[in-house]
């Protein structure tokens, strides 16, 4: 009897350790990446997230409690194009994980790095690199997570990364990818219909993070409240922007949730344009913890502001 108990305990311990060995420990930098990764990885992955979603994507704080997560991770899933430059390289630098090291250009180097930007149709690649142009990103505008179609690219990159790191479950990852792509593609068809009234609508945004959103919706962005990327608005710049908005009959002001409502509100009063508040990451608003919900929320916010709610 006693030997049976010991045998059972031993088997359960071996089984438990084998099961944990078969699970990929994944850290995603952003909530919507964690969502897609969980969909692709299914039961084979355990996922942690670095950003909460309510921050400015460029200003996620390097909390030391994030270091152990990266230390134990088999993979880190990140948006790339240096959008996580304020936190990911710094955390990787101290995480002492040989599978993923900080990299000055790509943020992450090593077999555990899954860069979701591979294959993205990158917009706004700078023709010249100078800080006189503000906080520009050398590889191009990194906010492609606001284009629902790039969700397909993100999912494919994650599936490829998981398959590379865990080839035993590659078939499962492919199967999960297929299911997710089908779901997202169906949504995209629907959202294209929703977005039709936005085509040609002139707009301004607070930060230069909307070109991919514009590519999907057809919105025409004519300026930003920031003087240049990362350079705070000045009174003279805002007055010129108000004039331009009046001339161009700009109907929409897009405020990313992390920016205070005061200035966009003032602009709206001066111009009669409506303000739409969007999230630049999943979980920016309650109930937007998935890529699909984030994309849908943003579209609804834009449509609501121009009086064309779906």
């Amino acid at each position: 009897m006693r030997s049976n108990i010991i045998l059972a305990l031993s088997l359960s311990i071996v089984g438990a350790s084998a099961a944990s060995a078969l699970t990929l420990n994944v850290v995603a930098t952003l909530p919507e990446l964690a969502d897609i990764a969980s969909r692709i990885g299914g039961e084979h992955v355990k996922i942690d997230t670095l950003a909460r979603g309510t921050e400015d994507i460029h200003q996620v704080v390097m909390r030391p409690s994030l270091v152990p997560k990266l230390n134990k991770a088999d993979a880190v899933v990140y948006l790339g194009l240096t959008v996580e430059h304020t936190f990911l390289p710094g955390l990787l630098n101290v995480a002492a994980n040989p599978e993923m090291r900080e990299d000055a250009v790509k943020q992450c180097a090593g077999p555990g790095c899954i860069d979701c930007s591979e294959g993205v149709k990158v917009l706004e690649k700078p023709s010249t690199l100078s800080r006189s142009e503000g906080e520009i990103h050398p590889s191009g505008n990194p906010h492609y997570n606001l284009d629902p179609e790039e969700g397909l690219t993100i999912a494919r990159n994650i599936a490829a990364g998981f398959s590379r790191l865990d080839s035993d479950h590659a078939a499962d990852y492919r199967k999960n990818l297929k299911v997710y792509l089908a779901e997202l593609e169906a949504k995209i068809v629907l959202w294209r219909k929703w977005a039709a009234p936005l085509k040609g609508v002139k707009a301004v945004s607070y930060h230069q993070d909307v070109p991919y959103l514009a590519r999907f919706t057809g919105l025409e962005f004519v300026g930003t409240l920031e003087v240049k990327p990362g350079v705070a608005p000045t009174p003279s710049h805002l007055e010129k922007l108000v004039e331009r908005m009046k001339q161009d009959k700009v109907a929409l002001i897009v405020r990313e949730k992390q920016f205070a409502p005061k200035l966009p509100g003032w602009m709206a009063e001066k111009t009669g344009a409506k303000v739409a508040v969007i999230g630049t990451m999943g979980k920016a608003f309650p109930g937007t913890d998935t890529f699909i919900k984030m994309s849908e929320h943003n579209l609804q916010a834009l449509l609501g502001a121009v009086g064309k709610a779906p």
Partner: peptide
């Protein structure tokens, strides 16, 4: 600051 600028963990 000119040129390279990084956010180091120790400087957070």
């Amino acid at each position: 600051l000119i040129g390279k600028h990084v956010h180091g963990f120790r400087d957070r």
